[in-house]
């Protein structure tokens, strides 16, 4: 079953068009990776799907169009974005950050259970519940951003460069958690990454974005073998 279907998506900032008709899809419970150089339009794609910028084309979630929705309505529809740079609420405690993630939910009991679950999955956050989020390390903030997005119980998690600025060991940890959540919750994910090696390792399929267009797509295996990806992203 196709969960997210994006067809001929165009978007940009003001008069400058950045995406010139991007098409991609994410199946139920699948992890899909978008690779691309700096400035290829990866973040723009994510922001367009999340409803943060003006966009045209088709964006369907489970067959229903979500293209005209404001960001909060996109969240309500079941899509949550972990933005590039994490978007931490610096002056709110870790606990409050996670509660904000549940803004669209009304089920108190469920929120409580999820909070307990994510504190278990992210023990570094559990020991810093009352700490101001701005004082966390980069890796901790990335964990917090992921946990915050998960608090909305999304059907599709969008993740924009989760490895950015993190030490290799921490990157490994973040991707382990993403993979674990995917397996345990059957949660579909669309992940933007420049660290192709590690991202392709947990993905089933991948897209290669160049100058606002998809230039290559296929299974993670096939992209790993492709010369273009090898040269640009894997270095061998």
């Amino acid at each position: 079953m196709t969960l997210l279907e994006v067809r001929d998506l165009t978007a940009g900032y003001g008069p400058a068009e950045v995406l010139h008709g991007v098409s991609l899809r994410v199946e139920e419970a699948e992890i899909v990776v978008v690779l691309g150089a700096n400035g290829a339009g990866k973040t723009t794609t994510m922001r367009a799907i999340a409803g943060l910028i003006g966009r045209k084309g088709t964006v369907n979630l489970d067959g229903a169009s979500i293209i005209g929705l404001s960001p909060d309505k996109v969240v309500a529809a079941g899509v949550s974005l972990v933005p590039q740079g994490r978007g931490t609420f610096a002056k709110l405690s870790v606990d409050d950050n996670l509660h904000v993630g549940a803004a669209k939910r009304r089920d108190r009991q469920g929120i409580k259970e999820d909070l307990a679950r994510w504190y278990e999955v992210f023990p570094v956050l559990a020991s810093r519940r009352k700490q101001m989020a701005g004082t966390l390390s980069g890796g901790e903030q990335q964990m917090l951003a992921v946990a915050r997005a998960l608090m909305s119980r999304p059907r599709l998690l969008l993740c924009d460069e989760p490895s950015l600025g993190l030490a290799p060991l921490i990157v490994r940890e973040v991707f382990n958690v993403l993979q674990r959540v995917n397996t345990e919750q059957q949660m579909a994910m669309l992940i933007v990454e420049q660290n192709a090696e590690i991202a392709l390792g947990i993905a089933s399929r991948a897209y290669l974005l160049e100058a606002g267009e998809v230039v290559s797509e296929g299974t993670a295996e096939s992209l790993r073998e492709s010369d273009a990806v090898r040269r640009a992203y894997l270095g061998y």
Binding site: A50, L52, S70, P71, D72, V75, A76, S80, L81, P83, G87, T88, F89, A90, K91, L92, D96, H99, V100, G101, A103, K104, R148, A149, S152
Partner: peptide
Amino acid sequence: LHMRATASNRESAALAG
């Protein structure tokens, strides 16, 4: 809490729903 979140980072608040 939602007011404080919006004040702290408007875009993230929107992304949180």
